[in-house]
């Protein structure tokens, strides 16, 4: 394994309930990489992101994700997970809590104090901090997820359709988030159907088709 690689997948496959979802995935990600992944619906893009987030364990192949390997101890897996952030298709908010509480609860879980910069202000939600999440739009909920990440910049940021629900003013926040991660020598892997929005920030592109990943020259 190269020490500089944040992620290395070698001949990785993932199958569940008898169906092969991903097959023969080879991928190396280093600090500074921004990989955009496209592909048709159901091709395995989201599963690949979950696998990179260590939320799915590959059913074959070898992997190294921020130090987590197939034989990692629970402590090493935890260490890796604390440096990964995933923004998935559906918002990861508690609907009954306010937007501010949704940010603060994660700070408390991680045992960190409040940030010196108000992350809700950065994402344009300072005035709505007391609103319940259930009363807000998908775009606002996305911004709350961005605010959480701004409080704990991850080494590996995984984004699944990050522009979904965002208005014109909110879209630059995705680039802001990516830049923050890259500034700290992290890497970003992003699934998006909005190629015109993501192309300017990508350093690499790939396409998942029927469970296999092909890198496309940029």
């Amino acid at each position: 394994m190269e020490n500089t690689a944040l992620v290395r997948l070698t001949n990785v496959g993932y199958a569940t309930s008898g169906s092969v979802i991903l097959d023969d995935i080879d991928l190396t990600i280093s600090g500074g990489d921004v990989l955009g992944i496209s592909g048709p619906n159901g091709s395995g893009k989201t599963t690949l992101l979950r696998l990179l987030a260590t939320l799915h364990k590959p059913t074959r192949g070898d992997y190294f994700i921020l130090g987590a390997t197939p034989s990692s101890s629970p402590e090493a897996l935890l260490e890796a997970r604390l440096r990964i952030a995933l923004i998935g298709h559906y918002p990861s908010l508690w609907p009954e809590m306010t937007l501010l509480e949704n940010v603060e609860m994660i700070d408390r879980l991680r045992g960190t104090g409040p940030s010196s910069v108000d992350p809700l202000e950065t994402v344009g939600l300072k005035d709505l901090a007391g609103w319940k999440a259930s009363r807000t739009s998908l775009g606002m909920q996305r911004r709350v997820e961005f605010a959480r990440i701004l409080n704990h910049i991850p080494r590996l940021l995984l984004l699944d359709e990050p522009h979904a629900g965002l208005d014109e003013a909110g879209r630059p926040l995705v680039d802001h988030l990516i830049n923050k991660v890259i500034d700290q020598n992290g890497a970003v892997i992003m699934v998006s159907h909005h190629q015109y929005l993501v192309n300017p920030v990508l350093t690499r592109r790939g396409e998942v088709t029927s469970g296999t990943l092909q890198e496309i020259s940029t």
């Binding site: 997970r81 604390l82 990964i84 990861s92």
Partner: peptide
Amino acid sequence: PVRDLLTLN
């Protein structure tokens, strides 16, 4: 999604 968030945190 919340369970994923909690696992990663």
